[in-house]
Amino acid sequence: MPATEAVAAPRRLEWLTATVTDVIVETPRVKSLVQDVPRWPGHRPGQHVDVRLTGEDGYQAQRSYSIASAPEAAHLTLTVERIEEGEVSPYLAGEVRPGDQFELRGPIGGYFVWTVAAQGPLFLIAGGSGIVPLMAMLRHRAAASVAVPARLIYSSRTFGDIIYRDELDRLMARRDGLEIVHTLTRSQPAGWSGGMRRIDREMVASAGFPSSQRPRTFICGPTQLVEYAASTLQELGHEASLIKTERFGPTGGVG
C-alpha cells in the first residue's frame, strides 16, 4: 500500500433512510429486502448494518443484520430470518412491503470482511442464516470474475431451509473454482446426495482446503457450530489468525 495511505478513512456513522423496493421470499422463515438507500457510501462483503425501528410511541429497537448483496450490486440487500420472539425480525421478515421505510446505519465492521484483493483460497462455513455475509463474498467473487478457489460448507435443517439455494447452484455451475457442499441436519429429501449430519471433522477436512494452502476462512452461524468448526480447523493445523468467526448466539436462540 502507498506510504501516504491514511489510517482507515474516518467516517461518522449516520442514520439513513432505506426504502424497500422488493421483498424476496427465500424460505418460509427468511426474506430478503432489496432497498434504495440514498447516500449509501458503499460496503465490503461481510459487513453489516444496524437497523432501527421506531414505534408510534417513540419506542426504539435496534438490531444488526449482515449485508447480503455484493458491493457491485445496484441495490443494498439484507436477508433476515424471522425469530418468533424477536423485536425486529418479525417485522422485517414478516410484514415489510415494497415502499416501506426504516432507518439503518452502516456499513459497519472491517474485521469479518473479504474482498478479491485479499485473494484466497476462500473457505466458507455457514449454518442457517449464517450464509448471509458469506453470500455477499460469493456474489462479490462472481461479480469481480476472479476465479479465486472457494469452497462453502453450508448446514441447513431441511432442504426447504436452504437460503439462496438456486443461486448457489447457479454459482457452482459457472465452474470457476467454487465448490459447495450442503448438509441437512434434520431431514433430507429422497435421493439427497449431500451431507446428512451436522458439520463434523471429517466434513471440514474433506470439503475444505489443506492448511498448507492457508485458506482465508470465514465461519458464520450459531455459536455451537462456529466454535466447533473453528476449533476443528485449528486442530487440523490451520492458523488461528486466518480463521474469522461471527457468532449468532445460542443455537435456536430467541431475540
Partner: peptide, 21 residues
C-alpha cells in the same frame, strides 16, 4: 448477524462494531 438473545454466551468482538463506531 441476526437477532440473538442477551445471554451469557459471548459473541465476537465484531458484533460491537456499531457501538464502537
Amino acid at each position: 448477524m441476526s437477532e440473538h438473545a442477551d445471554t451469557n454466551a459471548p459473541l465476537d468482538g465484531n458484533s460491537a462494531a456499531g457501538l464502537l463506531h
